[in-house]
Amino acid sequence: MIASVRGTVLHVGLDHVVVETGGVGLLVHTTPATASEWRTGSEARLHTTLVVREESLTLYGFTHADAKALFEQVQTVSGVGPRLALAMLSVHSPDAVRQAVSSGDVVALTKVPGIGRKGAERIVLELRDKVLVGGAEPQAPAPPGTMGDAVADQVEEALVGLGWSAKQAADAVRTVGTSQDPPTEVAAVLRAALRELGR
């Protein structure tokens, strides 16, 4: 299993990137939003899942482990393969997918190409008791006065959603996290990061 890939981005497509690792260019399928975070020549690190089929080995990659965990989880539903799982994460954020499943929002799930009403109902039925809204796994609390990885990831995603690049978002969150007496709540970190980006 190839659990992660790190290296230089050789090519960026609409729904994939090619990352050079150890002299080998690996084609990694991803969501359009994730692909747009990278530029040719930049350094990328992706959490990956290798899907093995009789005729192919296909890598799927995500910026955050949270998205990778959900990608793998939705494939436990009968009739949901990697392409459909990726389509779900292309249309909705991981938290939006979890929210739709836990609240039984069939309409939101049918917005994904390839998922009809019956398929959406099956996803809700099979996953409702398994998904945790807000994260793939319960997070251990961060030590007092430090920002947890989950908080940093959430704030970075929010900033990218507001129009900043992944690098700008990561830099702003890092600056906030290394300041004297940094905030630890998502809302407070987001406000501080926005102030940092507004300078």
Rank of each mutant, 00 (worst) to 15 (best):
Ile2Ala: 01
Ala3Asp: 00
Val5Tyr: 03
Arg6Gln: 13
Arg6Phe: 09
Arg6Met: 10
Gly7Glu: 08
Gly7Met: 04
Thr8Asp: 08
Thr8Val: 14
Leu10Phe: 09
Leu10Met: 14
His11Ala: 15
His11Phe: 12
Gly13Tyr: 10
Gly13Leu: 09
Gly13Asp: 14
Gly13Met: 08
Leu14Trp: 12
Val17Ala: 02
Val17Pro: 00
Thr21Asn: 04
Gly22Ser: 01
Gly22Ala: 00
Gly22Glu: 02
Gly22Arg: 00
Gly23Met: 09
Gly23Ser: 11
Val24His: 03
Val24Gly: 02
Val24Gln: 04
Gly25Asn: 01
Gly25Cys: 04
Gly25Lys: 04
Gly25Ala: 03
Leu26Asn: 06
Leu27Asn: 10
Leu27Lys: 15
His29Thr: 04
Thr30Leu: 02
Thr30His: 01
Thr31Phe: 00
Thr31Arg: 00
Ala33Ser: 10
Ala33Leu: 12
Thr34Ile: 12
Glu37Thr: 06
Trp38Thr: 01
Arg39Ser: 12
Thr40Pro: 06
Ser42Ile: 03
Glu43Thr: 13
Ala44Leu: 03
Arg45Ala: 11
Arg45Ser: 08
Arg45Glu: 09
His47Trp: 13
His47Gln: 14
Thr48Ser: 12
Thr49Tyr: 08
Val52His: 03
Arg53Ile: 01
Glu54Thr: 00
Glu55Ser: 09
Ser56Val: 03
Ser56Tyr: 04
Leu57Ser: 11
Thr58Arg: 11
Leu59Asn: 13
Leu59Gln: 14
Leu59Ile: 14
Tyr60Trp: 09
Tyr60Ser: 06
Gly61Glu: 11
Gly61Ser: 11
Phe62His: 04
Phe62Asp: 00
Phe62Gln: 03
Ala65Lys: 03
Ala65Gln: 06
Asp66Lys: 04
Asp66Pro: 03
Lys68Cys: 08
Lys68Pro: 05
Lys68His: 10
Leu70Glu: 13
Phe71Leu: 12
Glu72Arg: 15
Gln73Asp: 12
Val74Ile: 15
Gln75Thr: 15
Gln75Val: 15
Val77Asn: 07
Ser78Lys: 13
Ser78Thr: 14
Gly79Pro: 07
Val80Tyr: 11
Val80Asn: 09
Gly81His: 06
Pro82Arg: 08
Arg83Pro: 00
Leu84Lys: 06
Leu84Val: 13
Ala85Trp: 04
Ala85Gly: 02
Leu86Glu: 02
Leu86Phe: 01
Ala87Ile: 08
Ala87Tyr: 06
Ala87Met: 06
Leu89Phe: 04
